[in-house]
């Protein structure tokens, strides 16, 4: 199949590659670019583990064709920590024991990041709504919801 050139920024870094026509962004991120932080769960848009941020919007990378991402700004959990310092969401997920097997965690954190970018002081219901496209097998969700609320509080304390 003919390769398609595609160029985008991933976590602030420019990436360019030739991808198979029809290849998903998830596959390209994991197998060509080498960023495996987005997880391949159901690969049909049901579980949310592949969630990434494309131009500020939460997207399922398993349902996004890589060739449609030309010029896009893509963010993944792999780029959240800066200079070895964890992002407040990552720190909160650890502090609140919000992960067990960890497979859903990158998607949960991306969904939470889009929420907090738009709404720095979300309610419990806001968090539930924001995470409603992501499934978790292990935690029972409550620790994850608590982690997102904790991260929001620590953000607002740092801003104050």
């Amino acid at each position: 199949m003919a390769k398609v050139p595609v160029q985008f920024t991933l976590n602030g870094e420019e990436k360019a590659d030739f991808v198979d026509g029809g290849a998903t962004l998830l596959k390209v991120l994991r197998e060509k670019v080498g960023d495996t932080s987005a997880k391949a769960g159901c690969q049909q848009g049901t579980c949310g583990s592949c969630s990434v941020i494309i131009d500020g919007e939460l997207r399922l990378s398993c349902l996004t064709l890589a060739e449609t991402c030309g010029g896009a700004e893509i963010h993944t959990t792999g780029g959240l920590a800066t200079d070895g310092v964890l992002h407040p969401l990552q720190r909160a997920f650890m502090d609140e024991f919000a992960a067990q097997c960890g497979f859903c965690t990158p998607g949960m954190i991306m969904a939470a990041k889009v929420l907090l970018d738009r709404n720095p002081n979300p309610s419990h219901e806001d968090v539930v709504e924001a995470l409603s496209g992501n499934v978790c097998r292990c935690t029972g969700y409550e620790p994850i919801i608590r982690a997102v609320l904790t991260a929001a509080r620590s953000n607002s304390q740092n801003a104050a």
Binding site: Q44, T46, S132, G133, N134
Partner: peptide
């Protein structure tokens, strides 16, 4: 036949 049709509760069902 797949994940789409397997009913697993989400964060709203806790």
């Amino acid at each position: 036949t797949d994940f789409n049709e397997y009913l697993m509760p989400g964060p709203g069902d806790i």
